[in-house]
């Protein structure tokens, strides 16, 4: 896991550096980092064995609606 975190940190840093160099708009950089962080959170949840399973959420939501 530590390697994964390191990898993401390095990759995120280099990508943001490159995006800044490419003169991307702040909005795009923000969006990019948000998605990467979301993905990162998801992966960490997998490593911590608390998987995020969208199917479960949707299923229980539908069950709750139809009661």
């Amino acid at each position: 896991m530590i390697w994964f975190i390191l990898f993401i940190a390095v990759a995120l840093a280099t990508s943001i550096f490159m995006m800044v160099k490419q003169k991307k708009s702040t909005k795009e950089i923000m969006l990019f980092s948000t998605i990467v962080l979301l993905g990162f959170a998801d992966w960490i949840s997998i490593f911590l064995e608390r998987k995020f399973n969208p199917n479960h959420w949707i299923a229980s939501f539908i069950d709750w609606i139809s009661l």
Binding site: K27, E28, F32, I35, G39, I46, K51, F52, P54
Partner: peptide, 28 residues
């Protein structure tokens, strides 16, 4: 995403989504 946030270039967003999609697909 590009259309919603009015971003012109798809490449960075598509790279960043790999992480999310592969993570989610492991969730099942």
């Amino acid at each position: 995403l590009c259309q919603l946030f009015q971003v012109n270039n798809r490449s960075w967003l598509s790279i960043s989504l790999i992480l999310l999609v592969s993570g989610l697909s492991l969730g099942f």
